[in-house]
């Protein structure tokens, strides 16, 4: 199927991937091949009334609405993983320009 440059750019922005020109060209070709090969999905579900959203019919089991005391050491282990931090806080780029 035809997968144009404009669509590629929109998809890359949506999934937060910066692509070089060379990469964009290669991925565009890949996506065209994949979508062309898989376009038979259009007829694969003919006759099915509903789409499958849940593999198992389970009911969510809710927990008690109570605060559980957390082990501070666990929090320390997680904070260690932040690439940039100030104290216990993660430093992130600005989300509003």
């Amino acid at each position: 199927m035809e997968f144009d440059d404009e669509t590629l750019k929109k998809v890359a922005e949506t999934c937060r991937l910066k692509l070089s020109e060379e990469e964009a060209k290669a991925l565009k070709k890949d996506l065209q091949i994949i979508l062309e090969q898989f376009k038979e999905i259009q007829k694969a579900g003919e006759g099915a009334e509903e789409g499958l959203h849940y593999v198992n019919e389970t009911t969510n089991e809710l927990r008690e609405d109570e605060v559980k005391k957390k082990d501070e050491k666990e929090t320390e282990e997680i904070v260690k993983l932040f690439s940039k931090k100030e104290g216990r806080f993660m430093v992130s780029p600005k989300s509003l320009e």
Binding site: A12, E13, R16, L17, K18, L19, S20, E23, S83, K84, V91, S92, P93, K94, S95, E97
Partner: peptide
Amino acid sequence: PTDVTMPLAKAVSEERA
């Protein structure tokens, strides 16, 4: 690690790339 001096969307896009 992302470059926190950039705007969020740009920083994340570059890191993932």
